Amino acid sequence: MQKIGLLFGSFNPIHVGHLALANFAMEYAPFDQVWFVVSPHNPFKDQKALAPAQSRLEMVAIATKEEPRFKICDIEFSLPTPSYTINTLEKLKASYPDYQFTMIIGSDNLLNIDRWYDSRRLLKEHSILVYPRPGFPVKNADIKHYDTIKVLKAPVLEISSTLIREGIREGKQLRFLVPPGIYDYIRNNRLYNST
Results as ranks from 00 to 15, higher is better:
F136S: 01
I105G: 08
S39R: 09
K144T: 02
I113L: 09
G135M: 04
S119Y: 05
Y117E: 06
T102Q: 06
A20Y: 12
L157D: 10
F77L: 00
A141H: 12
L19Y: 11
F31N: 09
Y131P: 11
V138P: 08
Y117M: 03
K48C: 12
L19V: 11
S78V: 12
D114N: 15
E90W: 05
P97E: 04
S107R: 00
H18Q: 01
D98A: 14
P97C: 12
I72A: 05
R133L: 07
Y99W: 09
F24Y: 15
L123C: 00
R133E: 03
T81I: 12
V156T: 14
Y146R: 09
E90K: 14
D32Y: 06
L21W: 08
F36P: 08
P52E: 10
Y146P: 04
I86P: 02
K65S: 14
F31E: 04
N87K: 11
A141P: 02
K91I: 07
L21S: 07
F136Q: 05
S95M: 15
F36Y: 06
R69N: 14
K65H: 15
A94N: 13
L50C: 14
G135D: 07
D74P: 03
Y117I: 02
M26H: 12
L50F: 01
H18T: 10
P155E: 02
P30G: 13
H41P: 04
E58A: 13
V38F: 11
E27K: 15
P30W: 10
F24V: 10
N112P: 07
T64S: 09
K71A: 05
Y131N: 12
T64H: 11
T85A: 05
A61R: 13
D32L: 01
C73R: 06
I149L: 01
A20V: 03
W116E: 04
M26A: 14
D98I: 12
I62P: 02
I86N: 01
S55K: 15
N23S: 15
P137Q: 01
D147V: 08
P30A: 04
P30C: 12
L111E: 11
S83Y: 04
L92V: 10
N112V: 11
N42S: 12
M26R: 15
K91R: 13
I149D: 03
Q54F: 13
I149N: 04
T102C: 09
E66R: 13
N87C: 11
D118Q: 15
R56K: 05
I128A: 07
D108N: 12
M26S: 13
P132F: 08
Y99D: 10
E76R: 07
Q54V: 15
M59I: 08
K71Q: 13
P40S: 03
A25I: 01
K139I: 11
A53I: 06
D98S: 15
S107K: 07
F77M: 10
I62R: 01
E76Y: 03
S107E: 00
P155W: 08
I159K: 02
P134K: 15
Q33I: 10
M59C: 02
P80F: 05
Q100R: 13
R115F: 00
K71W: 01
V60S: 05
L110H: 02
S160L: 08
M103D: 01
W116M: 05
Y96V: 09
V60D: 04
K153T: 13
A22Q: 04
S160I: 04
F36W: 06
P137H: 12
F70H: 10
R121V: 04
F70G: 06
T148Y: 01
